[in-house]
């Protein structure tokens, strides 16, 4: 009899626990990244006073020149996150600011922030301002961001700059989509990682990409590489 009287109470308690669990999950759903973003403070905090002053001056100059401030602030945060010395951080921000400014000069006043950042990266990888101008001319008004990211990656992976630049210009000339640029880059990177010479990989893959009709999909989030070892069934 006692058991029977307690049962409705127990059922309610368990229902309340289940609801609390669901509610807790819903409350905790707020993206952690967003919370981190809110909690993130001044990227200059924690640096020496002289460093803050130098970086502040660089940021002020960038603001005046209408360079993408967020990218420079992210570079400071990156340096702090990686434990770089203050001098390294100032040097990195100064070099990036210079590259962004140079990219603006090469790509034009109407260049987007994404194009400036990608162009700055290409310049830092070894591409010249004149070569950026050439690509701007080939591209017309379309965004060069992805093409420049691909070009910078080519140079970073050892693809000779001349053929790399020619390949990008050729694709721009054919009106290739960003997906096609990404596809070419992924194939070349894969070939290089398996030991194929960078120039050979670029030549072969460019020919292949150009011969395929229509845009190819962006490389899937789930790659087709070899799998990890997996037990066939979950069972304690």
């Amino acid at each position: 009899m006692r058991r029977d009287r307690r049962r409705p109470v127990l059922v309610r308690v368990r229902a309340a626990l289940l609801l609390a669990w669901v509610a807790a999950g819903a409350l905790a759903w707020t993206p952690r990244a967003a919370r981190a973003q809110e909690a993130a403070g001044d990227p200059l905090a924690g640096l020496a006073a002289a460093t803050r002053q130098a970086l502040g001056a660089l940021l002020d100059s960038a603001r005046t020149a209408r360079l993408p401030l967020a990218t420079l602030q992210a570079k400071i945060a990156e340096g702090v996150s990686k434990g770089a010395e203050d001098e390294q951080i100032v040097r990195a921000v100064r070099e990036l600011s210079g590259a962004l400014s140079q990219a603006r000069g090469a790509l034009g006043a109407a260049a987007s922030d994404a194009e400036l950042v990608a162009g700055g990266g290409a310049l830092q990888a070894g591409v010249s301002a004149g070569e950026l101008r050439r690509l701007r001319t080939s591209a017309g008004t379309r965004s060069l961001a992805t093409a420049l990211v691909v070009l910078g990656d080519f140079v970073r992976r050892g693809v000779p700059k001349g053929p790399g630049l020619d390949a990008i210009a050729e694709l721009l000339g054919t009106g290739a989509t960003d997906e096609k640029f990404s596809d070419l880059r992924a194939r070349v990177a894969r070939d290089i990682s398996t030991g194929v010479a960078a120039a050979t990989a670029l030549t072969a893959r460019l020919k292949q990409v150009n011969s395929e009709p229509g845009p190819r999909a962006v490389p899937a989030a789930v790659p087709t590489g070899p799998p990890n070892p997996v037990p066939p069934e979950v069972e304690p």
Binding site: K82, Q88, R91, E95, L96, G121, A125, D153, R156, A186
Partner: peptide
């Protein structure tokens, strides 16, 4: 390693 790479300015990628 399969994504586009860039110099981070701190000696790495």
């Amino acid at each position: 390693r399969g994504a586009p790479l860039a110099d981070d300015g701190f000696g790495g990628d």
